[in-house]
């Protein structure tokens, strides 16, 4: 079979590209029909005359040799790992307890050994920093809280029926479920205050606190209309669990039942 020179070159470039892709992207090397491609090279070889054509032939041959090498590595790795497929891993992870998984890791862990040390230079830097430090008595006082402002202490949270324990997670999940249901009824998003406002000020604060967690951890998108200032909540299950750190929004609450934000 005669192949036109242009087509022949294109064919050989395709082989080279295929071999490179397999190596670079980690595709299954058995996807390459090495015997078939070698046969193509064998058929094309008598037609090659120019050094550049012979170089291409050599490069393709080298690529196929590398694929064979990768096939060897692939078989070795699979047999070493006892053909551990993702489904088996999922099953084992589901079956084993946290201590069992940790135990499995410890059997395979060879931690790095390193020595931390101080140099004369670092000591001099530390001494000069120490000398420049102002005495504690002269440190500026922290700014006083404005009237009506207070830091939420653990005690205050407890008084709202909130604590960072297992049941807190349950409350978060329940709030998210409610939010999703209400947003769905409202066509995708819901005004912040419609959701957060509750029967009492205490409950409103608790709800606002839970919503702030959901927003921080990507379960909910909180947006503000720049003209009206209206706040809206939109459940985002697709980003759930991915903390958002781009910006923070302070929403004041007052006892009249609605905030200023």
């Amino acid at each position: 079979m005669r192949v036109k020179p242009g087509q022949a070159e294109e064919r050989i470039l395709r082989i080279i590209h295929l071999c490179r892709e397999v190596e670079a992207k980690g595709f299954n090397p058995f996807e390459v029909d090495v015997a078939g491609e070698l046969e193509v090279l064998r058929r094309l070889l008598p037609g090659w005359v120019k050094p550049s054509e012979l170089t291409l032939d050599g490069e393709a041959l080298r690529g196929l040799a590398r694929v064979v090498e990768l096939q060897d590595e692939w078989v070795r790795a699979r047999s070493r790992l006892r053909i551990l497929d993702p489904e088996t891993v999922r099953e084992r992870v589901a079956e084993l307890t946290i201590p069992q998984l940790a135990e499995a890791f410890l059997k395979a862990w060879r931690p790095t050994v390193k020595i931390d040390f101080l140099t004369g230079e670092r000591l001099r830097e530390a001494a000069s920093y120490w000398v420049r430090l102002k005495p504690k008595s002269r440190l500026p006082e922290p700014p006083a809280l404005k009237e009506g402002e207070a830091e939420a202490s653990g005690e205050a949270l407890k008084s709202l029926g909130l604590s960072l324990s297992e049941d807190f997670r349950g409350m978060l999940e329940e709030t998210f479920r409610q939010l999703k249901a209400e947003a769905e009824r409202a066509g995708g998003e819901i005004p912040y205050w419609n959701f957060v406002r509750a029967g009492s000020f205490r409950e409103t604060v608790a709800r606002a606190y839970l919503v702030s967690f959901l927003a921080t951890y990507g379960y909910v998108h909180l947006s503000q209309d720049r003209l009206t200032g209206e706040l809206k909540l939109k459940p985002t299950p697709e980003t759930a669990g991915k903390p958002r750190g781009e910006y923070s929004l302070a929403i004041p609450l007052d006892r009249e039942g609605e905030g200023h934000g």
Partner: peptide, 24 residues
């Protein structure tokens, strides 16, 4: 550098409850 993946998969496949108790 630090994790022997072969040993990890081996122990993941073979570890059983009594072994964990023994380890503890």
């Amino acid at each position: 550098a630090e994790v022997d993946l072969e040993a990890l998969t081996e122990s993941l496949l073979t570890i059983s409850e009594p072994e964990v108790e023994k380890g503890r």
